[in-house]
Amino acid sequence: MKSNTPLIGILTSSKSDGSIAGNGPLFIALQKKLISLNGISFVFIPEGMEVDCINGYSYSPEENCWKKKSFPFPDLVYNRIPFRTKEQEETSQLLFSRLREKNIPFFNPCFIDKYELYQLLKTDNTLRDHLPETILVKEKNQLLAFLKRFGGIYLKPTQSSKGKGIIRVRMEGPSEILLEGINKQEIYPSFTQFWEEWNEELLKKRYAGQEEIESAEYEGKRFDFRILAHAHYDNYTLTGVGIRHSQEQEITTHIPSGGKLLPYHLFQSSEHDEFFQTIISIIGKSLSEQFGFFGEFTIDAGVSKSGRYYIYEVNSKPMSFDEVDIEERKIENLCRLFLQLINAYPQEKNA
């Protein structure tokens, strides 16, 4: 007989060496918070699914260790598979199908392809004005025309995160091309020579081209907003905003790539707050309608020197925030959302 204690399954995957991947500190923080709310969680991988149970690991705060156990199917699954390839594997897809059969809610349903995201968001009249022009790189002349139109563009793999693989390309003089990456800089005498070296990478890895926005600066360096949002009943709530300030290089403001963290209160304004609140609601609902329920996401956004807001990216598996207060609110909002969803979805465990 099933317990009345809410049971949350946190889905991750294994690493190549067979060990469990994922954000351990997040999993522990969620377990501690859920226990205080009379709930419980366990971490599992798709291969842990059996016919009528799931093998996983539960964290014991008293003993400060993980314990392997068999659990009944949970009331809800929180998808934290950290690798796109793992999420697309047959075992993961079988698990998602089983959860649907059993009417078990789960989020977030998938990673987001950057170009598919652009196509989705530009269908909304409000969001369209905040999107940098973007193309899917298909052939030489198309990319050259796009570069000539803007003078500078970013090239991003559509299925990567944390700034991996991103480069900036600018036209220098009548024919020269300047390429800048996080740790590299090269000059090509012509676009043809740039294309000869890069076309295989750009086409094989499915790159998007995005117009370069002249970003507003703080102390002479560009900055971006990192906006964290969570579902709250039929809408979305703003959990927190962090500022990422570029330092050694201007290609990305990500902290692992040398970006600096600044507190939002240095920049806070009613205009910023209104913009964030407007876009998180529209983006959250658009994602959920298109891909399945999104319980959380982050937005990388910015403001240009002319004062125009831009949405650069949306991420479905938010990294931990270095801001302690935002991370704490994230844990609270996630656990609140878990319990909201469990109450909203009557289970059919015997399906």
Rank of each mutant, 00 (worst) to 15 (best):
residue 134 T to Q: 12
residue 66 W to Q: 12
residue 117 L to C: 08
residue 180 E to L: 04
residue 164 K to V: 07
residue 61 P to I: 09
residue 342 I to A: 00
residue 308 R to M: 12
residue 6 P to K: 04
residue 315 N to G: 04
residue 286 S to D: 03
residue 30 L to K: 03
residue 101 E to H: 08
residue 140 K to Y: 07
residue 153 I to H: 02
residue 8 I to K: 00
residue 182 I to H: 04
residue 285 K to G: 06
residue 278 T to F: 05
residue 174 P to R: 12
residue 229 A to C: 06
residue 239 T to A: 05
residue 141 N to L: 11
residue 11 L to A: 07
residue 2 K to S: 07
residue 68 K to L: 13
residue 308 R to D: 15
residue 249 Q to M: 02
residue 231 A to E: 11
residue 227 I to F: 02
residue 256 P to V: 03
residue 245 H to I: 01
residue 280 I to Q: 03
residue 143 L to Y: 05
residue 309 Y to T: 04
residue 42 F to M: 08
residue 13 S to K: 05
residue 75 D to S: 13
residue 239 T to R: 03
residue 170 R to G: 12
residue 207 Y to S: 15
residue 162 K to W: 15
residue 112 I to N: 08
residue 63 E to P: 01
residue 97 S to V: 00
residue 2 K to H: 14
residue 114 K to C: 06
residue 192 T to N: 13
residue 92 S to G: 07
residue 216 A to E: 13
residue 186 E to Q: 14
residue 24 G to Q: 15
residue 321 F to I: 14
residue 209 G to Y: 00
residue 62 E to F: 14
residue 36 S to E: 15
residue 148 K to H: 14
residue 167 I to C: 13
residue 125 N to M: 14
residue 51 V to T: 10
residue 333 N to Y: 11
residue 15 K to C: 09
residue 141 N to E: 15
residue 111 F to A: 08
residue 144 L to Y: 08
residue 109 P to Y: 01
residue 20 I to V: 13
residue 345 Y to A: 10
residue 107 F to S: 09
residue 78 Y to Q: 03
residue 55 N to P: 01
residue 104 I to Q: 03
residue 225 F to N: 02
residue 34 L to D: 11
residue 203 L to E: 04
residue 205 K to C: 02
residue 57 Y to P: 00
residue 75 D to P: 05
residue 41 S to P: 06
residue 142 Q to G: 07
residue 170 R to A: 15
residue 73 F to N: 00
residue 190 S to F: 00
residue 78 Y to R: 06
residue 135 I to A: 07
residue 214 E to N: 05
residue 214 E to A: 06
residue 174 P to E: 14
residue 259 G to H: 02
residue 184 K to E: 11
residue 7 L to R: 06
residue 117 L to K: 06
residue 307 G to A: 06
residue 199 N to L: 04
residue 344 A to W: 07
residue 101 E to M: 13
residue 16 S to W: 09
residue 267 F to T: 00
residue 174 P to Q: 12
residue 121 L to A: 08
residue 227 I to P: 01
residue 298 T to I: 07
residue 76 L to M: 00
residue 120 L to R: 12
residue 209 G to D: 01
residue 248 E to T: 11
residue 258 G to F: 01
residue 166 I to M: 01
residue 59 Y to W: 01
residue 186 E to N: 09
residue 141 N to S: 14
residue 175 S to I: 08
residue 207 Y to H: 12
residue 166 I to K: 01
residue 5 T to P: 04
residue 3 S to Y: 03
residue 149 R to L: 12
residue 161 S to N: 15
residue 238 L to T: 06
residue 319 M to L: 14
residue 41 S to R: 03
residue 290 Q to G: 11
residue 67 K to C: 11
residue 218 Y to S: 05
residue 342 I to P: 00
residue 151 G to F: 12
residue 163 G to F: 05
residue 125 N to P: 15
residue 23 N to V: 00
residue 155 L to P: 10
residue 42 F to N: 01
residue 113 D to N: 14
residue 262 L to N: 00
residue 333 N to K: 15
residue 257 S to E: 14
residue 350 N to L: 06
residue 341 L to C: 13
residue 210 Q to M: 04
residue 125 N to F: 13
residue 237 T to M: 10
residue 281 S to L: 09
residue 153 I to R: 02
residue 145 A to T: 12
residue 292 G to V: 04
residue 149 R to P: 08
residue 227 I to Y: 01
residue 71 F to D: 03
residue 77 V to L: 03
